[in-house]
């Protein structure tokens, strides 16, 4: 089992001017120059790993991962300009994506005929993201072209992924 408690912040103050643009000589910086969470800030990061050798032939592995959702921006409002619907945002990285978690399992089959030969092989039957959780990689906001309604779109890369692997050594 591993657990990490962390916090990651960054700060981007406005630059000093390098040329006179005829406008203001100051920049406000990102988030008005205040500290804000980086996009990779994960408060809690837990991983559990279990392994069980049933017999010489079969062994089982499983792991569970839980991470606090990463910081992101949700619109604090929207406005319309010439028929365009435009979301606008508040302070940087104030919101978080839904928490990330998944379970993977694997069963490893080591055939008996391995004994005494140079060709060592094993079969691994695994399932990634066992309960097919739709972990969000990002959440986008847009206007649905067909219905005209605004909606939030979650992009998740993988659902459940079963796999069969054949490993060999010689």
């Amino acid at each position: 089992m591993a657990y990490t408690l962390s916090r990651s912040e960054q700060r981007t103050p406005g630059r000093e001017p390098f040329e006179d643009t005829g406008r203001s000589d100051r920049e406000t910086g990102i988030n008005f120059g205040e500290w804000y969470s980086t996009p990779y800030d994960k408060t809690h990061d837990i991983s559990l790993y279990g392994s069980y050798d049933l017999n010489k032939k079969w062994s089982f592995n499983t792991n569970f991962i839980y991470q606090t959702g990463q910081p992101t921006n949700y619109p604090v409002g929207k406005f319309e300009f010439q028929g365009l619907t435009v979301p606008f945002y508040g302070l940087r990285n104030k919101e978080r994506l839904p928490d990330y978690h998944r379970i993977d399992i694997a069963a490893t089959l080591t055939p008996k005929k391995n004994t005494g030969r140079s060709w060592q092989a094993e079969w691994v039957f695994s399932i990634y993201n066992l309960y097919s959780r739709r972990n969000a990689a990002s959440v986008n906001f847009r206007r649905n072209q067909d219905t005209g309604a605004n909606e939030a779109i979650r992009t998740s890369i993988f659902g459940i992924v079963p796999a069969v692997t054949y490993n060999f050594k010689f």
């Binding site: 939030a152 979650r154 992009t155 998740s156």
Partner: peptide
Amino acid sequence: LMLHTACEDVIEVDLSDQETR
């Protein structure tokens, strides 16, 4: 099973923080 796990879907998001301009 894999084809049914599309990359995108519509979700409910609670947008609590509001500003009127």
